[in-house]
Computed example of a mutant assay.
Amino acid sequence: MMTDSIHPLSRIRAVLFDMDGVIYVGNRPLPGVQELLDYLDATGRRWMLVTNNAALTSQQFSDKVAAMGLRVPPERILGSAEATASWLRHQVEKGWPEGKVIVNGQDGLRAALTAAGFELTSDPFEAAYAVSGANFKLTYDDLANVTLAIRNGARFIGTNSDRTYPTERGQVPGAGAILALFTAATDREPIVIGKPNAPMFEEAMRRLGVAPEETMMVGDRYETDIVGALKLGMLTVGVLTGVDTRATFEAQSAPPHLIVEGLPELLAHFQRADATQGVRAERSSP
């Protein structure tokens, strides 16, 4: 259990939230989400929702949570598609060559790369970059073309390494399973952007203008949400509204700093810490 003397919540300037299992389950919002987001706004803290899902754009995610009654503007949402496109653009700005991108993925990933200024191609022999995410309309030609591009020298980049994707029918192959296929076919390992890898967290913190030591990560999966944040020196919170149980979190060699039943309990921790430090909420809603 975290103590305020060691990890004072009143010093946290920004909070990153995983989405599925933390903000909502399916199409149902979880208790206390809007209340906590409003409190963070009211106490001058920044926040962002971060997800490995690369299928949707930030606007589409915003529309999805709006249908649940949650007020989350698109600029407060970072999916792995947009994180990947933004990361790649920064690499080009720092010296990587401009070039066309061959994509294995869905419309959200294609839209993010296009918005970041990249020209997409289906020709494996003119691609400078090969970017792969989840693709629910995958064909053998898709696999062959991306494989050929990588073998021809295209830099190999993955949106996330999630091996499975949850559906109504159960767990189906995710982006990580497809990356494994490309690795087997090319003997090349991808640069992976999504959690638990550093680029996803770093992009979110860059947008919020904060450092790891003043940032909290809230997630329901230890191996993605918590591991990566701990490596960067962030404060971590495991919530029990999604995949992992308290026993799972506590069994880790480096467990989350705090484990809570849900976001209402996390809000209560913030309120107690702020009251101790004399922090006052200036407003009750954004």
Rank of each mutant, 00 (worst) to 15 (best):
F182S: 00
V227Y: 02
S161I: 13
K195V: 00
A149I: 04
G219A: 13
F136R: 12
I157D: 09
I193S: 00
T139K: 14
A149M: 07
M217L: 11
R207Y: 04
D187L: 09
V239T: 14
L143R: 00
G176Y: 01
Y165D: 09
R207T: 01
G176H: 15
T183G: 06
A149Q: 03
A180W: 03
G170M: 05
L148P: 00
T186C: 08
L148F: 15
L179A: 07
G209A: 15
E202T: 11
N152S: 15
A180H: 06
A149P: 07
R206C: 05
G133A: 10
V146W: 04
M217C: 08
L148N: 03
E202N: 14
A185H: 09
F156A: 15
A134S: 09
R207S: 12
L148T: 02
M216S: 01
P173L: 09
T164K: 10
G153C: 06
I157W: 08
T215P: 10
V210I: 09
A211N: 04
E168Q: 07
V237S: 03
D142E: 01
V192F: 02
I226V: 04
D141I: 02
T164H: 11
D220S: 02
G174Y: 02
A154F: 04
R169I: 12
R163A: 15
D162G: 10
P166Q: 01
G238P: 11
E213Q: 14
A204T: 12
A134D: 12
P173Y: 05
I157K: 11
P173M: 12
G194M: 13
N145V: 08
F136V: 09
E202L: 14
M234W: 05
I193K: 13
E223C: 03
L240E: 04
A184C: 07
R169A: 14
I157L: 13
A180Y: 02
V227L: 11
R151K: 15
D187M: 11
G176I: 04
T139I: 14
N145S: 15
T241E: 04
T164R: 13
